[in-house]
Nucleic acid binder design. Structure first.
Lengths: 220, 220
DNA sequence: TAGATTGTTAATCGATTAACAATC
DNA sequence: TAGATTGTTAATCGATTAACAATC
């Protein structure tokens, strides 16, 4: 399974940089909504609490969006970052696991606004199959393969119990899924062709717990 | 507002290290459940896909848990990391915002197992106040202050719309909250005394989108 | 004891910050 | 033009990895 991790793009951009793009995008969206036309890296730095240097460095990975002596045009930069993040495209999305979390994500309309189109939701519990969420019925897992073939699905959201996750991920992989947004509390081992983004809620809560515990035990 | 970010602990441990602890904890839990008694950094390295060097380096921030020639005792290390993460303590937790996500988190029993005790849930929508979730009624926001005073709340989970988040965070701060697990799509600006852990779902989805988009456009 | 594997120091690598020449 | 601010190179900082002496 020796597979070059790099050489995928002309110049591979670090995940540290990519991880900051949505935050830039968010702040620029706010500035745009406030009707602000231009912003300098220093102004953005003051608002966002990162160095102006990092902002300029990050943006220059993708090209020169600014202009010397002027700064950056808010609307233009906002749109460029959106494009870089792939938000100019639409992605079809299904949810696997119609438990509380799956239902909550299905109901969250903001994803749709960004081009993530909710197409279907699946569960292996017959008791909830047929139940409608935003006018889409929960389907049994048996229909997954046919549905994926007929609906050009890009992203699967995995909100199933931990023990089922690996097997279902394999099944999704064999159906040709391109990306998995994984909420199950395991690290999926899949081909590098398939993009995986983990949201490990319990890990996040534990980090909070550490900071809380270590912060209160000082002045020892 | 000049405030020393460091000097909180004897030796401040980087968030990079802390962020890896829950993952170590998870893998050790699995080994423990499999009845495995000892593990070397090299074995753990093979399973977890991180370098053995990093594992040893990380663990040694907190003390020597291993033994030369033997490795680490799985159960002991599991418990030590649990203690470091603060999982030996119990934390009282409330949820602000009883929408889909708030309800989903309230119903997720696994947090309870780790010592995060669900004590109450609040919403400013009168229509859903009184509704019961795991036998706990949704309370109106007006009762927040009294409830927090009477129930020794440590953590607030913020699952409210973006526009309400900052004001509610201020209110929580004035009631003496110690930590906020923030699902609202804003960066809260609070005193450094209050621990904040963000779960920005849309940012996470955008990262996935970037990787998906940039991965499919190669071979240009 | 010899072998294994840690704890820890030193070397490397990558990411962040500073500085400044280019240029609008 | 002079002033402002970028794009980009160089310096610094921190995090990761390698190496190995300590030791079980």
């Amino acid at each position: 399974m020796l597979q070059e991790a790099s050489a995928v793009e002309e110049r591979e951009i670090s995940q540290a940089v990519i991880g900051r793009l949505p935050r830039y995008f968010r702040y620029l969206g706010v500035l745009k909504d406030e009707g602000i036309e231009r912003v300098s890296s220093q102004e953005l730095s003051d608002i966002m609490q990162v160095t102006a240097s990092q902002i300029r460095q990050d943006l220059n990975h993708f090209g020169g969006f600014g202009q010397q002596g002027y700064g950056y045009n808010v609307e233009h930069l906002y749109e460029e970052i959106g494009r870089i993040l792939g938000l100019d495209k639409e992605y079809n999305l299904i949810i696997i696991g119609a438990g509380h979390l799956g239902q909550a994500l299905a109901n969250y309309m903001n994803f749709e606004r960004r081009g993530f189109i909710f197409k279907g939701i699946f569960d292996n519990n017959p008791a909830i199959c047929g139940m409608k969420i935003r006018n889409i019925a929960v389907r049994p897992m048996e229909e997954l393969e046919t549905f994926m073939r007929e609906n050009d699905i890009d992203i699967a959201v995995l909100t199933v119990p931990r023990d089922n996750a690996a097997a279902i991920a394999e099944q999704l992989a064999s159906c040709g899924i391109k990306a998995i947004w994984n909420f199950a509390h395991v690290d999926l081992q899949l081909s590098k062709e398939i993009q995986v983004e983990n949201v490990h809620l319990l890990d996040s809560l534990m980090k909070l717990s550490y900071n809380l515990a270590s912060h209160s035990e000082d002045r020892s």
